[in-house]
Design a binder for these strands. Structure first.
Lengths: 342, 342
DNA sequence: AACGTTGCCTACAACGTTGTAAAAAGCTAG
DNA sequence: CTAGCTTTTTACAACGTTGTAGGCAACGTT
């Protein structure tokens, strides 16, 4: 029931190679021959055997996207865009979940999929530097320049982004601005850069950076945000604004603020990063720094494409534009916050 | 730089087949031979060529998961579990996004990936019945029994689930219970069954089903939920509870209720389906019917595995357990709803 | 009429792996 | 020491595809 080029060739009365030529759109095939072949293909419902083709061609038409977890909204949204962008190159995307586990990330970087994929788009969480060099597979890294080897990088300007978010809060008159999501390991480039941008913005506004207002977060899930916010409040700190280093942290923080009886944004304004869907419908809606995710995905895929055609192109770094989207969590005016009867 | 069995064989001084035997864990290899081969493998950093192996073995070790969109939280969470479950069978998961587009779904069902995958787990949105039969690839469908062909089905008992959710609201003393998410096309089995369960619960409680309280929703995103809720309120309907047919609809509905100055749950209690992460941190947190997603994924993968080993097993149907998780959106007592100072 | 060009088609040999079948090497028991 | 085992290793032939090189017409040019 499953047919091969040979079967089609026999039915059409031509050679195997001619069928192959038709399938691959080779030009020099007489119209009537082509028609006969196409007819045979349709009659037998022939589909090329991908494995055989891959073996012969030396590529698979599959790229992998390695992310920590798919159910983190940012990565889910990113994955969606990567799949779309890859489709334009006729690539299929295979998802690798690292769970942010260093060992798992090392395996991915070392090329665990090797012969299975043509290239890899990798968003590392726990690894940086030399650990990421390695592999024979063309590699595009999402995030700051942390590796030195033959890999491209795509990211937003995190320092500027954090400066924008913090500056926005300063502009609203907030003075005791906390930060949630600091990480002090060497690998956590994103956290470091966002903290740097935050500090710069404070300095520019003539505000002192208060270490008591900087809360670390091991991971960046909602629960961590809630946790960090609660811890911060428990120290007696009374911020009038919080910059969270991503949206899920921010949503968690808002939850904790609510539980503590504090109003957002009246008592505490909250801003995040990533512009995930949830933040557009949360209560209040969440002010955020939005990276152009579609652009990010497109650039990553295109870089990979370039890396596949050219031989050993120099590592490139691309910055993706971002913009601040003010929403209720920083801008809602107090009088609208009270429920009014229907 | 990329080595083959042949290279390893030469280095180890054995035949190609012996190396292959070692790689595949064949038992009858003398320990010292095995050691020599393993050494050579390590020295050359040999990795099997997957395409060649696939060609020879006739399978790829890849299964596809076809879902509407990855950035819908339910599908993202599901994908995560499927990837994990598949890993236990040494399968890699490839993601197909259909965007809920009938044409795209037809292609997927017809086996667009055919030779590339060993099996397919498919969550159709727009298609049902004969459209889904087809394909030579083993198929497991997520959702109600809508196809007649050789496919397995995995789903929760949607009628019972909707009955539970509605019954919970009835039990809290609500009497004007609305439903959001109705769909009247033939394909929308899930919506139909949930509506049926809703009706049953009302009947059981001696409440009349009021068509004015039933709001359709074309899609089940947050925006659709908000939209439907607004439309419902605009008709002058004054429900004291809403059953939304999934969590994103519910989150959107809560947003619309908030905008209309109505309090959740004081004025309107809200329940959803799916138990997505967002609902555990939203304000208020969302009462929901939780399917066991890990179980669902595991069962789907196992069914596929069975379908791959046995020849043409009869189509099977599995029901996955669900449970109602009451949260603030239905249970929060009024006095706690008012903010208290820090 | 002989010659190169071009267009169309084909035979053959890979790509790297594993199943089959059979040879070689080791054993055990007579 | 050999017959009859079992264990270990091997050669060979696929799997289905495409690149290479070449053949044969049909054409236009000298």
């Amino acid at each position: 029931m499953r047919h091969r080029l040979k079967d089609v060739a026999e039915l059409a009365g031509v050679s195997v190679k001619t069928v192959s030529n038709v399938v691959n759109g080779y030009i020099h095939v007489r119209p009537d021959t082509r028609a006969r072949v196409l007819e045979a293909i349709a009659a037998l419902d022939y589909r090329p055997n991908i494995s055989a083709r891959n073996l012969r061609r030396g590529r698979t038409g599959i790229i992998a996207l390695a992310v920590p977890e798919l159910d983190i909204p940012y990565f889910a949204e990113l994955a969606k865009h990567v799949v779309s962008a890859a489709a334009r190159h006729d690539w299929t995307v295979l998802i690798d979940q690292t769970n942010g586990d260093p060992e798992q990330e090392r395996l991915v970087a070392a090329g665990i999929r090797d012969h299975m994929i043509d290239g890899l788009i990798f968003s590392p969480l726990a690894l940086a530097g030399a650990d990421l060099d390695a592999g024979a597979t063309p590699l595009v890294l999402l995030g700051e320049r942390v590796a030195h080897g033959q890999a491209d990088h795509v990211a937003i300007d995190n320092v500027a982004a954090a400066r924008d978010a913090t500056g926005h809060l300063v502009g609203l008159g907030r003075r005791r601005i906390a930060a949630i999501g600091a990480q002090h390991t060497a690998e956590a480039a994103t956290a470091r850069l966002r903290l740097a941008g935050y500090s710069e913005a404070l300095r520019a506004a003539g505000l002192a950076r208060d270490e008591a207002l900087i809360a670390p977060a091991l991971a960046w899930h909602r629960a961590d945000g809630a946790e960090a916010m609660r811890a911060l409040l428990a120290t007696g700190a009374r911020p009038d604004a919080v910059v969270c280093f991503n949206d899920t942290l921010a949503l968690g923080a808002m939850r904790a603020l609510h539980d503590a009886g504090l109003r957002v944004p009246d008592d505490v304004a909250v801003a995040g990063f990533d512009d995930i869907e949830d933040g557009r419908f949360s209560m209040p809606t969440l002010t955020t720094v939005a990276p152009d995710k579609a652009d990010l995905a497109r650039i990553a895929v295109d870089l990979l494409a370039a890396r596949l055609t050219a031989t050993d192109p120099p590592p490139r770094e691309q910055t993706v534009p971002h913009r601040l989207i003010p929403r209720e969590s920083t801008t809602l005016s107090p009088h609208r916050d009270e429920p009014v009867g229907p």
